[in-house]
Write a protein that binds this DNA or RNA. Structure first.
Lengths: 207, 207
DNA sequence: GTCTATACTGTGATAGAC
DNA sequence: GTCTATCACAGTATAGAC
């Protein structure tokens, strides 16, 4: 084997540099837009020449991919745990989950654009990054099932409401709370609706 | 005055060429993404050299602006008229309006991206184009009022639901109908909710 | 392994000849 | 109005110094 005492130090240093590059990329994207990222600016910000970035990332899209993966990890680690949601009941759980989602997305619109909108031509997350992104979604679906929210289309309806509130907030009131204020009301509406549906399933009178 | 019989012919021809350029731009954007538009490709498609485009449009963003305005006109002319909505009642009106919105947006995701998401760095619609874009929104608000839908936040909640269904449909099931199928159900949910709110206003018992 | 230097191709945009 | 020529900038590839 080629393992040696030096090896950890080296890869550690390499990973630290990669993280530094990704952090600088976030800053530039927040300033100039996601698609406005320039590798030359990025290199200058971390004290390199542009081509040197290629010893850390294979391409510009590879940098976007690292940013995407980091965003997914932040999302997964911040999302309320299933146990916590189960403890407070379905309606309060919906409110907590939706508040987290909207707050996470509106806190960094550029991150939202990268993670949830497919807006960079030619970029799509690598299979590895995509797998990370699905984890949070599946966590949500597990809680829905455990909480007894299982009307057909209920999960899809929930994601539509969550992204809709987020989208309107970011597009039409950036920095404000005009749609954030509606989260609780929207979850009341959603919860009443699925409860009514689950009590009187479609196509049946009360059995 | 400089008006002359030739003048109309000239401006007509000029407008026709501008329209041809805009149509070609749409085609290229649908093929390569909104941000993937190249002026050289566009010029080639209409049989010009790249710099010649600048005698018709002041900049690339000016072309985006013309596309934006065209999209807004298409939206305004396709949107169901207030009288038609009033005739069928509030719930059926909500369903018709929302179906139109979702169908319009999903029919051309690139147009949706340009009109409803702010994703091109440095582009924002000119005041003239923006005025066109507000017309459709105000039409909707007038109908809401005429139909008696006036609970606080009701219009904001409606736009959130409409964009949310649209967004999920485009992002997660392009070309399909997984969220389009939920439009009627979502409008039932929304309508029940605002009816309940308007019958028992927040903060008051039944008066 | 990490960086610099150089260069190739393509981009939006401008100047000026015709 | 439309062209050619050109500019400054982008992403990217490669060669080679250390």
């Amino acid at each position: 084997m080629l393992a040696s005492p030096n090896r950890d130090r080296r890869t550690e240093r390499r990973e630290a540099t990669k993280a530094e590059i990704v952090d600088a990329a976030w800053e530039l994207c927040r300033a100039h837009g996601l698609a406005g990222l320039s590798l030359r600016d990025l290199a200058k910000k971390v004290g390199m020449q542009a081509p040197s970035l290629y010893s850390y990332f294979a391409s510009k899209n590879d940098i976007y991919d690292a940013m995407f993966a980091q965003g997914c990890r932040e999302f997964a680690s911040g999302q309320p745990a299933i146990d916590e949601l189960l403890a407070i009941g379905p309606l309060a759980g919906l409110k907590k989950l939706c508040h987290f989602f909207v707050a996470f997305c509106t806190a960094d619109p550029v991150r939202y654009q990268l993670m949830f909108q497919r807006t960079i031509p030619g970029f799509e997350p690598s299979p590895e990054s995509f797998a990370i992104s699905m984890a949070g979604m599946q966590e949500m679906l597990r809680w829905f099932e455990a909480a007894g929210i299982n009307a057909p289309g209920a999960a899809d309806m929930y994601t539509a409401i969550g992204t809709g509130l987020t989208d309107q907030q970011i597009s039409n009131d950036p920095g404000g709370d005009r749609w954030i204020r509606l989260v609780d009301d929207a979850m009341d509406m959603f919860f009443n609706h699925i409860q009514a549906k689950q009590q009187a399933p479609k196509g049946k009178r009360k059995r």
